[in-house]
């Protein structure tokens, strides 16, 4: 039984997270599409964590090189994604104050 539960729990995560992503994005005003796309772009920067683990386990120089590249790219995704999104959303705040 335990093995079956272990097999199914990722599938449940998959299903629930899938619905969640759908729910988060639906009914979003068009003006937020670009910032939100940028925001989700930042969120998948979590790949950095995986790249760190991959590099941490590397034993051969080739694995180290590929792992190094992975961490480099992952860090770029996370950091770049954050600041691009932040800059975009910063503008939103100021516009909201003046408008409406």
């Amino acid at each position: 039984m335990e093995a079956v539960v272990a097999l199914f729990s990722p599938i449940y995560i998959l299903m629930l997270a899938g619905f969640l992503g759908y729910e988060i994005i639906s009914r979003v005003p068009v003006i937020l599409h670009t910032p939100l796309m940028s925001g989700t772009n930042f969120v998948h920067g979590i790949v950095l964590v995986g790249a760190m683990v991959a590099l941490g386990q590397a034993t051969t120089p080739l694995e180290q090189a590929v792992g190094f590249l992975g961490v480099l790219l992952g860090a770029g995704n996370a950091v770049g994604g954050y600041f691009v999104t932040e800059r975009m959303l910063e503008m939103f705040k100021s516009s909201k104050g003046k408008g409406n």
């Binding site: 969640l20 988060i24 979590i46 683990v53």
Partner: peptide, 21 residues
């Protein structure tokens, strides 16, 4: 592959919301 739950959840959310978008 890495059994990393943060990556699984974040990845799937981005995958589905990105498809919607």
């Amino acid at each position: 592959v890495l059994l990393n739950s943060a990556m699984i959840i974040a990845g799937i959310i981005v995958g589905s919301s990105g498809t919607m978008l």
